[in-house]
């Protein structure tokens, strides 16, 4: 949560200083007129960390699947598990701020539509994968883990696609 907050604040200032054309205001300049920017900053700041955590979690579990050393394998899976849970927790503020930003629009049109097409399955998949990992913990079989990995990599692809279309909304030419 601390790192999420830190990431949000950092990105707010990076956007303000390096992309002033986006018309985002710094915290000191915020006024009710620019209230929408709070959500833009929150959404921008809260999305990147879960995306990164999801990707690295899938890679970590994938490595855990292929390495032969028991100790190393367990460490990769523990790292993957922690990152998955942290990523899923991080998705909650990202989804909430995104919904407020989109004025509670769950579909939309153009880039927003495609963003949502990928966001909703990703959200469900992340929650599902986290629940499965929490329930199963160490009592998983190798085929079970393989199926989990297929879905984890699918979630990684979906979250990347959602991120791509999110970027298109903000910076795309259309």
């Amino acid at each position: 949560m601390l790192s999420l907050g830190f990431s949000t604040v950092c990105q707010a200032f990076i956007i303000r200083d390096f992309a002033p054309g986006l018309r985002l205001a710094g915290f000191a300049e915020m006024t009710p007129l620019l209230a929408a920017n709070v959500w833009e900053i929150m959404h921008g700041g809260s999305t990147h960390l879960p995306i990164a955590l999801m990707l690295v979690s899938a890679v970590s579990d994938g490595l855990g699947y292929i390495v032969r050393t028991d100790r190393l394998r367990e460490r990769f899976h523990i790292a993957g598990f922690i990152m998955l849970i942290a990523g899923t927790l991080g998705v909650l503020p990202a989804v909430l701020s995104g919904l407020v930003l989109a004025r509670w629009e769950i579909g939309g049109s153009g880039a927003l539509f495609w963003h949502h097409i990928f966001v909703w399955p990703t959200f469900g998949l992340l929650v599902g994968l986290s629940v499965w990992r929490i329930i199963v913990r160490g009592r998983r079989s190798r085929p079970g883990l393989f199926i989990y990995l297929v879905f984890a990599f699918l979630a990684a692809v979906l979250v990347s696609a959602a991120g791509f279309w999110g970027g298109e909304i903000l910076l795309g030419s259309s």
Binding site: L125, V127, G128, V131, W132, I135, V136
Partner: peptide
């Protein structure tokens, strides 16, 4: 694992 998967699908 299958039961956990059903719970996971439901939760998702």
């Amino acid at each position: 694992e299958l039961k956990a998967a059903l719970c996971a699908v439901f939760a998702g």
